Computed example of a mutant assay.
Amino acid sequence: MTDEACDLPPDETAPGLSAPPDGLVLVSTPIGNLGDMTARAVAALKAADLVLCEDTRVTARLFSAYGIATRLTALHEHNEDTRIASVLAMLRQGKRVALVSDAGTPLVSDPGYRLVRAALAEGLPVGGVPGANAALLALTLSGLPPQPFLFLGFPPPRQAARLAAFARLRAAERAGLSATMLWYEAPHRLAEALADMAQIFGDRPAAVARELTKRFEEIRRGTLAELAGHYAAQAARGEITIAMGPAPEEATDADDLDTRLRTALDGHSLKEAVAVVTAATGLPRKQVYARALALAAG
Score class of each variant (00 low, 15 high):
Leu141Asp: 04
Pro130Phe: 03
Val100Pro: 00
Ala167Asn: 09
Gly131Cys: 10
Ala98Cys: 04
Arg262Glu: 13
Arg61Trp: 02
Lys95Ile: 01
Leu17Ile: 08
Arg220Ser: 12
Ser142Cys: 01
Trp183Val: 14
Ala207Glu: 09
Pro111Asn: 10
Gln199Leu: 12
Ala167Gly: 14
Ala171Phe: 04
Pro205Ser: 01
Glu250Met: 08
Ala290His: 10
Thr29Phe: 08
Ala41Asn: 02
Ile219Glu: 07
Glu192Thr: 15
Leu194Met: 05
Ala119Ser: 09
Asp81Ser: 15
Pro20Asp: 08
Arg40Ala: 15
Asp3Asn: 13
Val129Ile: 15
Gly176Lys: 08
Gly104Cys: 02
Val97Phe: 00
Asp49Gly: 15
Ala60Tyr: 00
Thr252Ile: 14
Leu17Lys: 01
Leu194Gly: 00
Ile200Lys: 03
Val288Pro: 15
Val51Asp: 03
Val27Ile: 07
Leu50Met: 08
Lys95Pro: 11
Val208Pro: 14
Gly267Arg: 03
Thr259Ile: 14
His78Arg: 06
Arg215His: 09
Ala164Leu: 11
Asp22Phe: 02
Val58Pro: 03
Asp253Asn: 08
Leu26Ser: 04
Ala119Asp: 07
Pro21Thr: 08
Val42Tyr: 01
Ala251His: 07
Leu194His: 09
Arg260Tyr: 05
Ile84Trp: 02
Val277His: 10
Glu54Trp: 04
Ala225Asp: 11
Arg83Gln: 14
Ala251Phe: 05
Val288Asp: 09
Arg40Asn: 12
Asn133Tyr: 06
Thr59Gly: 08
Val116Asn: 11
Ser28Gly: 10
Tyr184Ile: 11
Thr13Pro: 07
Asp258His: 06
Arg96Asp: 00
Met90Asp: 13
Asp81Asn: 11
Ala135Phe: 05
Asp7Ile: 08
Thr252Tyr: 05
Thr252Lys: 03
Leu72Phe: 00
Glu249Asn: 10
Ala264Gly: 02
Gln159Ala: 03
Tyr113Met: 05
Arg210His: 06
Pro157Phe: 02
Ala5Ser: 13
Gly16Cys: 11
Leu177Ile: 01
Asn133Lys: 07
Glu226His: 06
Thr70Asn: 12
Leu136Asp: 07
Val42Asp: 05
Ala118Gly: 10
Leu150Ser: 14
His230Ala: 01
Ala198Leu: 01
Gln234Val: 13
Ala14Tyr: 07
Gly112Arg: 10
Gln147Leu: 13
Ala41Ser: 00
Val288Glu: 12
Arg174Cys: 03
Gly238Pro: 15
Gly202Ile: 12
Leu169Cys: 02
Thr241Gly: 06
Ala207Val: 12
Leu257Asn: 11
Arg83Cys: 02
Thr259Pro: 02
Leu212Arg: 01
Leu24Gln: 06
Asp3Tyr: 07
Ser86Phe: 02
